[in-house]
């Protein structure tokens, strides 16, 4: 019998693994090898060992891109999870009418492709007469803000775009988590005299932990690959203030033709994401 209990797991995994190997793992391993080459992709490559990695950390632009990426990702995940939690609670709150409509509306931003979103935000963030600055001046707060050009705030303008885009999507995950908590648990704690906030903090949040962890893991993968929005809106400028590692990878790989160096750059990012994910998994397991 082919599909017995012993062989089945392997047979079931096989199609997935074959495709995973050919279309994910193999290209990735190949680019791991590339990261040790000095190669423009067109002429014969030279093997340079770990020199690309060493060079990376002596490149000022890279350090800036690294710090932008990590800080943007952490702030994004942090705030996004809070916003998503908040929205999730709203979606679950029985006192609000029209929740179904609200659920659909907050899901909308994630459906629009990033290039289009970035175009719309171009007009929202524009310094001269952009939508946001128009609102600010209508409300009477004088000076217009250079949302994308001011190096002190432009990274956060982009992060806020991302939060806007993703929090509704993840709020639905939170909602799912909330709905799986038996109402009696919450009711019981209220009868016990626990105040609303205390109920949330001591009972609901711990029960939501797995779903929050899932949201963090799923969103962190994309958070660290920040590329399209700053690329379309600012090209990473002014002076690298919105440069990210993914942009560094793209620039070096596709524009400067340094495939080896770009691969190394990507691997450093991967290492960071893996460490980040492992820490989360450990925290999760440790509990």
């Amino acid at each position: 019998m082919v599909f017995d209990k012993k062989k089945s797991p392997y047979l079931f995994l096989l199609p997935f693994l074959i495709m995973f190997f050919s279309f994910w793992l193999w290209p990735i391993l190949q680019s791991l090898y590339w990261s040790m080459l000095e190669w423009d992709g067109l002429r014969a490559p030279t093997f340079v060992g770990f020199r690309n990695y060493i060079k990376l950390f002596s490149e000022q632009d890279y350090i800036i891109a690294l710090s932008n990426t990590v800080s943007a990702a952490i702030v994004y995940i942090g705030i996004m999870v809070i916003v998503a939690l908040f929205l999730g609670f709203m979606l679950n709150s029985s006192i609000l009418p029209g929740r179904a409509a609200f659920r659909t509306i907050i899901f909308l931003p994630v459906t629009v492709s990033l290039p289009v979103i970035a175009l719309v935000f171009f007009i929202i963030f524009a310094k001269n007469n952009g939508v946001l600055n128009n609102i600010i001046s209508t409300l009477g707060f004088g000076r217009s803000i250079d949302w994308l050009g001011d190096p002190r705030i432009n990274l956060w303008s982009i992060v806020s775009l991302r939060i806007w885009r993703a929090s509704g999507f993840y709020a639905i995950f939170i909602l799912a988590g909330l709905q799986s908590i038996p109402e009696e648990v919450i009711e019981a704690s209220i009868i016990d005299g626990a105040s609303g906030w205390k109920t949330i903090r001591l009972i609901v949040l711990p029960l939501l932990r797995p779903v929050i962890i899932y949201v963090i893991i799923a969103s962190s993968i994309w958070a660290f690959q920040l590329f399209e929005e700053p690329w379309i809106l600012t090209r990473g400028g002014p002076v690298n203030s919105t440069a990210t590692i993914a942009m560094h990878v793209y620039r070096n790989g596709f524009q400067f033709f340094q495939l080896g160096y770009a691969s190394a750059s990507a691997y450093v990012l991967t290492a960071i994401i893996v460490v980040f994910a492992l820490i989360q998994l450990l925290i999760n397991k440790g509990k």
């Binding site: 171009f122 007009i123 524009a126 001269n128 952009g130 994308l148 050009g149």
Partner: peptide, 14 residues
């Protein structure tokens, strides 16, 4: 000067 990144549609309005 009107300072714009490329393709800023607001330039056309001005």
């Amino acid at each position: 000067t009107l300072n714009i990144p490329v393709n800023d549609p607001l330039m056309w309005e001005e």
